[in-house]
Design a protein around this nucleic acid. Structure first.
Length: 280
DNA sequence: CCTTCTCCCTGCAAGC
DNA sequence: TGCTTGCAGGGAGAAG
């Protein structure tokens, strides 16, 4: 379940291996993922040099010397694997195979095919429909309590749902939304509009802290996420609430047998985990 | 405009 | 054991 920390971990794994490499062979092994591949996908990549591997929200951005950018999204189950020599034969879910000079091979693997790859001109990147309208990067300047309170003003949805809205903040998904609200001591049910002042400050800090710690841990490896070198992330062991219904709250130790402990509920069709005592 | 719902897809686990 | 069912979830688009 790649969210910002997982995608950033992937970017950090790919950048040193791919930057400066020339894509000598590109094999597109099916017509579509979540969306169709663009016309002449393999042809437009072949022979190009990778200038930079970047990230915006949950999108990976491979800037090419042709002036085009390869936009890749991992969806739910997408992953890249790097092989420094003798890559294995691609399996049924290895949808794109890219060979570079220096014998490096890249596989894009995505069993559920919620991911996507497309190409656009670098000049048009910011106005591309996938990137236009995204909220700010939560780990960069410009994301602060004043900005957050302004963005949440008038929002009637629960704060948990608002945190997952990519137009408000870019890069948060279901797992980190629960973890961040726990860290901030804010109820996931609270109306987004009521997040102001000290709560907005706590929430901004929680966003930065949780995401920062998760990136240092290499993201979370629940089912699918691995770094491109095959390394597992280990932030899942540090989840305070996600996937832990019925366990005692790690902060207040409220007893699950007496209505305390971590609870699960569904908001907008997604599981939310929280401690009712600690989060208000 | 804002919010919620539905769908896309496969793999896994729980339950019968 | 072997089947069915439900859940996992990012994002687009429809519906309310």
């Amino acid at each position: 379940m790649p969210e910002l920390p997982e995608v950033e971990t992937v970017r950090r794994g790919l950048a040193p291996v791919l930057e400066g490499r020339i894509l000598v062979r590109v094999e597109q092994r099916r017509a579509n993922l979540r969306l169709p591949f663009p016309n002449d996908f393999a042809t437009r990549l072949r022979g190009r040099q990778v200038a930079e591997v970047g990230r915006r929200a949950k999108y990976l951005l491979f800037r090419l010397d042709s002036g085009e950018v390869l936009i890749a999204h991992l969806g739910m189950s997408g992953s890249f694997r790097i092989f420094h020599r003798d890559p294995p034969a691609p399996g049924p879910h290895d949808h794109v195979v890219i060979e570079t000079d220096k014998k490096v091979t890249l596989h894009f693997h995505d069993p559920r095919r919620f991911g996507l790859m497309t190409l656009t001109r670098a000049d048009d990147l910011e106005t591309h429909s996938m990137l236009a309208g995204l909220g700010p990067e939560p780990l960069e300047k410009g994301f602060d309590e004043a900005f957050l309170a302004e963005r949440l003003r008038g929002r009637r949805s629960p704060i948990k749902t608002a945190l997952m809205d990519q137009k408000i903040i870019a890069g948060l998904g279901n797992i980190y939304a629960s973890e961040i609200l726990f860290r901030a001591g804010i109820s996931p049910r609270r109306k987004a509009d009521s997040i102001r002042g000290v709560r907005a400050r706590r929430l901004v800090w929680a966003v930065r802290d949780v995401l920062g710690e998760a990136i240092i841990a290499g993201g979370s490896s629940l089912r699918d996420h691995r770094a491109p070198g095959g390394e597992l992330g280990y932030f899942q062991h540090r989840f305070a609430v996600y996937g832990r219904p019925g366990e005692p709250c790690p902060d207040c130790d409220c007893d699950p047998a007496r209505t305390g402990g971590i609870r699960r509920m569904v908001q907008s069709g997604r599981s939310t985990f929280y401690c009712a005592r600690r989060q208000r």
